[in-house]
């Protein structure tokens, strides 16, 4: 059996509300193995966004362990977490989150800037990623000159540019029409076939079904698992 790429062990997350605790995640345990394509599905308020923040090292569990590539992530300092986000996680957001004043190329280069990669190398790698998502001829465009689907492709190129362990997508099709959404999921499938590990968080069963495994969440717990089309 191979080592899991990421593993959550009895992860809880709660927030203090007055003297009470508001529990958002309750004993969540699961593992993702290299090359897997996993969906986490649940209605809003099920705790999937909080889970995504923890998986993305934007937030830390209140209790339990999170191991990423064999290294426990809980207890890391802010700078160490920033480094993990930079090297190990590639984010794709619902609203693309591109920097509006930067060209597509500059947006894709940004993670490499924070990784301290030299200018020429940065450009070379960013161009290669943009080519993969079919935007070679849009590299000098600003985000507001691109369509929704193109923006999300730039975001995917940006997420992958630093060769992360995991591509983490939060409602990646939420701001797109159905056809474009399917295109983006097609790109995910293609990436998966090339060996990229992907975790998609969504409330949409149609989107979730592209994955190999679908984890169901409800009220802060994992309540079930099924196989998806991608299997």
């Amino acid at each position: 059996m191979t080592e899991p790429l990421m593993a959550l062990e009895r992860v809880c997350k709660w927030y203090p509300v007055g003297s009470e605790r508001l529990t958002v995640l309750q004993d969540v345990s699961f593992a993702v193995y290299p090359g897997e394509f996993v969906s986490i599905m649940g209605p809003s308020g099920s705790g999937k966004s909080t889970l995504m923040h923890i998986l993305g090292c934007l937030d830390q569990p209140s209790s339990g362990r999170y191991v990423l590539r064999g290294r426990p992530v809980d207890g890391l300092t802010g700078d160490e977490l920033a480094r993990v986000r930079n090297r190990e996680i590639g984010f794709v957001f619902q609203n693309f989150h591109l920097l509006p004043r930067m060209t597509a190329l500059r947006n894709v280069e940004l993670p490499l800037v924070y990784a301290g990669v030299a200018r020429e190398e940065r450009r070379r790698r960013a161009l290669a990623r943009l080519e993969e998502v079919g935007l070679r001829d849009r590299i000098s465009h600003l985000p507001n000159e691109l369509s929704g689907g193109q923006k999300q492709r730039v975001a995917i190129a940006r997420a992958l540019v630093n060769k992360p362990a995991i591509l983490l997508a939060d409602e990646p099709t939420g701001a797109l029409d159905t056809r474009t959404g399917r295109e983006i999921m097609g790109i995910f499938t293609e990436l998966h076939q090339r060996g990229v590990t992907i975790v998609v968080i969504t409330h949409d069963p149609g989107v979730a079904s592209f994955a190999q495994r679908i984890l169901h969440m409800l009220d802060g717990r994992l309540v079930g698992e099924e196989r998806g089309r991608g299997a």
Binding site: G56, L58, G78, D79, A82, R83, R85, N86, R87, F91, H97, L98, L99, L110, P111, Y114, A115, R158, N162
Partner: peptide
């Protein structure tokens, strides 16, 4: 603020 959040998610340290 959102730009700062995006930069942080891409690996910007607080110092950066």
């Amino acid at each position: 603020t959102q730009e700062i959040g995006i930069r942080m998610s891409l690996g910007a340290t607080r110092r950066a």
